[in-house]
């Protein structure tokens, strides 16, 4: 679910639809947009305080075979939430291995690559201090 929540817009649907046809399902909770209050800690490690909210879309559905899928994803993205909940439900079925290979692994690779690209740019701005020798000895 954590991985699905961080997928770029439309990406889960794209991967899921290439992997397999979508099964039918029933909504337990139709996609709904709301917010979550993000908290921080004073001095990074102390008492919590409310930092501000983030928009979140959530939904829950059930497959004809009974598996329940949930999604809580950042942003206002109903179709992404639907796709995420479907993947969550399907991961509890026999399709799990196939879906891991065709949806979750590629998502993980893409997110890791994006993070690494950013980290590499940050690393290029790392300061290397050098001290000039002074003439006393």
């Amino acid at each position: 679910m954590s991985l699905l929540a961080k997928a770029p817009e439309g990406r889960i649907s794209a991967l899921l639809d290439t992997a397999q046809a979508r099964p039918g399902f029933t909504w337990l909770r139709a996609p709904e947009i709301g917010s979550t209050m993000v908290r921080g800690r004073a001095g990074a490690t102390g008492a919590p305080f409310n930092l501000g909210e983030v928009t979140v879309t959530r939904c829950a559905l059930t497959l004809p075979s009974g598996e329940v899928g949930h999604a809580y994803i950042q942003g206002r993205r109903k179709s992404d939430a639907e796709a995420a909940a479907l993947v969550d439900a399907l991961m509890q079925t026999d399709a799990a291995d196939a879906l891991r290979a065709s949806v979750l692994d590629p998502l993980m690779q893409e997110l890791t690559a994006a993070k690494a690209a950013r980290a590499a740019k940050a690393a290029a701005t790392k300061v290397e201090f050098f001290t000039l020798a002074r003439g006393e000895d």
Binding site: E32, I33, G34, S35, T36, M37, V38, R39, G40, R41, A44, T45, P48, N50, L51, E53, V54, T55, V56, R58, Y72, K115, R118, A119, K121, A122, T125
Partner: peptide, 23 residues
């Protein structure tokens, strides 16, 4: 707009020690 959103809950306090730092 914020006032129109239902509040789903609160997050666990974020861990800034685990930040992927740009700076």
């Amino acid at each position: 707009y914020r006032t129109t959103l239902p509040r789903f809950g609160a997050s666990n306090p974020v861990d800034t020690g685990a930040m992927a730092c740009d700076r």
